[in-house]
Amino acid sequence: MIEAAMIWNEPNNKSHWDIEIDPDWSLFADMAIVAADAVRDTNPDVVTVLGGISPIDPLFIQNMQGRGVLDHVDAIAVHGFPLDWNLWSIHDWPKKLAEIQAVTDLPVWVSEVGVSTFGAEEVQLWGLKRTAELLKGRAQRIQWYSLFDLPQEWGATTRHKEAEGSSYYRHFYMGLIREDGTPKPALREFARHTPDLGLCQWFHFEDPRLDEGVAWLKRLGVKSLRTGLSWADSFRPNALAWFDRQMEALEDFDVTLTFCFTPEHRGIEPHHTSPPLVKEEFAEFCANMIERYAGTGARRLRDFA
């Protein structure tokens, strides 16, 4: 069930990692190494993936290489949203992948790519078609973000919220299914590209959409799913009961499980983007979740090319 463990989410994005505390990412690198090693020591069959980067920046990957991180992971990942947040054309996807492939021999996954319907649902439909044309066959994993629109009352997990202007509100319209449960035009097009295209869907703590989401994933023919377990959520009451329910519901998919979000009381600063006070505590969380949901195993030879 657990195909891969992703160490953090968008570590080079200030909405997900506090670069004021860690401007050269040395703390992140140290944390990523101990976490990746903990996953590998627990179950060597689980692919370890450096958290998907956004923006797509070869200099960041070279920084991670210089700090030894790439010696401890099996793959790296990129995130791209050229019709919403990035300052490059959607037609440049092959070029952006090539920029990363030029600085590493590791496989490059596309663990988030998507188009919002903030402006028009027709834009998402066109963007999905073009994305599939450009990426299929060029990356081992391509995971579309996302299945569901984000409910307006939940709030997006970003650092500066409404101060981001329209960039913030686009977060609520990334789904193939509207908040009221009705499908958008791009949903049918997406089904034409499975299982080559997988999905990235973050299920929130005790998410009421879980069962509906699983039903849609199966109906659409999705095989590869990226989701996450929050280190911060692990301190909530009944956290393990929710984690168990979520992971049992997803047992029929090849899951990339993302580990991220610092508990406020365990960060250098009290925020989910903060480096942890003790990096080994994050590594222990990763190892415990892998043991609980993937068990242990003997590492086998893989061809990740």
Rank of each mutant, 00 (worst) to 15 (best):
D18A: 14
D18C: 12
I19T: 15
I21A: 10
D22L: 12
D22I: 11
P23S: 12
D24W: 09
W25K: 08
W25G: 02
W25Y: 15
S26G: 08
L27K: 13
L27Y: 12
F28M: 07
F28C: 02
F28T: 02
A29L: 09
A29E: 10
A29D: 12
D30R: 15
D30I: 07
A32K: 03
I33L: 10
V34C: 13
V34Y: 07
A35S: 15
A35Y: 01
A36F: 03
A36I: 04
A38D: 05
A38R: 07
V39P: 01
V39E: 00
V39S: 00
R40P: 00
R40C: 00
D41S: 11
T42L: 01
T42H: 01
N43A: 05
N43L: 02
N43E: 01
V46H: 08
V46M: 07
V47D: 05
V47A: 01
G51S: 10
G52R: 03
I56R: 10
D57V: 05
D57L: 06
P58Q: 01
P58A: 02
P58I: 02
P58R: 01
P58T: 05
L59R: 14
L59P: 00
F60R: 09
I61V: 15
N63Y: 05
M64I: 08
R67V: 01
R67C: 01
G68Q: 05
V69K: 08
V69R: 12
L70W: 09
L70F: 11
D71Y: 06
D74S: 11
D74A: 10
D74W: 12
A77T: 10
V78P: 03
V78H: 06
G80N: 01
F81P: 05
F81V: 10
F81N: 03
F81I: 05
P82C: 07
L83N: 13
W85Q: 09
W85P: 11
